Amino acid sequence: MSKLSTSLVTLAGSTLLAACQTVPSNFADASDKRAVRAEQLTPITKSPNWQLVWQDEFDGEQIDLNKWSFEQNCFGGGNNEQQCYTARPVNSFVKDGLLTIHAQREDFSGPAANDDADDYLTAGTRTLPYTSARLRTKGKGDWRYGRFEIRAKLPTGQGVWPAIWMLPTDWVYGSWPVSGEIDIMEAVNLHTQSDEVGAPPGEREMRVHGTLHYGRHWPENVYTGSGFLLPDGKSPADDFYTYAVEWQAGEIRFYVDDYHYATQTADGWFSQTKTDNRWQDNGHNAPFDQPFHLILNLAIGGGWPEAVNEKGLNPDALPQNMQVDFVRVYQCSVEPDTGAGCEARDPNARHVKGVKAP
């Protein structure tokens, strides 16, 4: 959920380790401003060749620290989010087979820098008006290629921003977004007035988004993706749905339940690093050819949600919960080194053209 992306209605943002400025628009295709509707698609069947290699069903009495770590900071995600992330049980806990991430109104002080920043311990503290939680598998669950499934029920409200996403573990090609980011699912401002192109007055915001971040360092970074709407006017805040990506060498596909709604390929992404004052390509499949880890978080406010829908941050929307039923990671048994051979594709899924290297 790289929260440096703020302005595109159907594209997601991220919460980064790097810069904290709003980025320019980079639509690969103007039609991507409209979300893909489930009614445009045919449900697919997941390949039987996916083998489960890691999971958390949240059946215990507490968060499994062998699988998850807490990020603890008041950094603001790099784009003026208004929450501090804590490790307190009030902000994240396991009960009745569910992980709950709870965001609430309270003034809280904590480190002003991101957990992985060099100055995390020396940057001082910052006070923000909300608390929440951000969990990650870094160093405990890191994968290159596979199928990643997360079944979740999302919160609502103007300024409320749940995310399920992935960042590189070792940042092989350099800091964000040169080493990439995979946003499996993000949603902002659910149940507020939709501002999708062509949405009629009174239509509620119910889109979820799948996005990739890549390219060069800001301000030449790129983000491309697509929104998705569930069938029959259903809301991702009213029930649990399974959000997934299938990631193989040169291709990443996005799913909600049995709907494959978007695909991005290496022909539409790139990674470049400046060496001797010249931009150098990092390879055809880069940056999505290195181990990534999973992140679950609930942000409040920030550049993207506050700029769209009903604008700003509604304090009356809080408290809110993001609930997760399970997280499952699979490896393709056909070609585990590339992730190929387990594809489940809908020919009507949107092929996001992406942005080619300059």
Rank of each mutant, 00 (worst) to 15 (best):
K3V: 06
A113S: 09
K153L: 03
M1S: 06
A103M: 10
L190F: 12
S69N: 05
R37G: 13
N79H: 12
H209M: 15
V160F: 01
Y85K: 00
V352M: 09
A35N: 15
T242W: 04
T86E: 01
K153D: 06
F292H: 09
S179F: 06
N221F: 06
H213N: 11
F148C: 02
P291W: 03
A187Y: 12
K353I: 05
A117P: 00
Y330G: 06
C74G: 01
Y330L: 02
E61M: 04
P236M: 12
Y173A: 08
H351L: 15
P231Q: 14
D232W: 07
E149H: 05
V245R: 10
L41A: 14
L65N: 00
Y241P: 07
E335S: 11
I164N: 02
G215Y: 01
M1P: 08
L298T: 03
T137G: 08
Y85F: 14
V178S: 02
Q193F: 06
N189R: 08
F292L: 13
F288E: 03
H217T: 12
Q272L: 06
L154G: 10
R253T: 03
P155N: 12
L4F: 02
L135C: 05
P236R: 07
W54I: 06
W54D: 12
E343I: 04
A163P: 04
D281M: 10
A340F: 08
W165D: 02
V90T: 02
Y241I: 09
I63S: 00
V324M: 11
D257V: 03
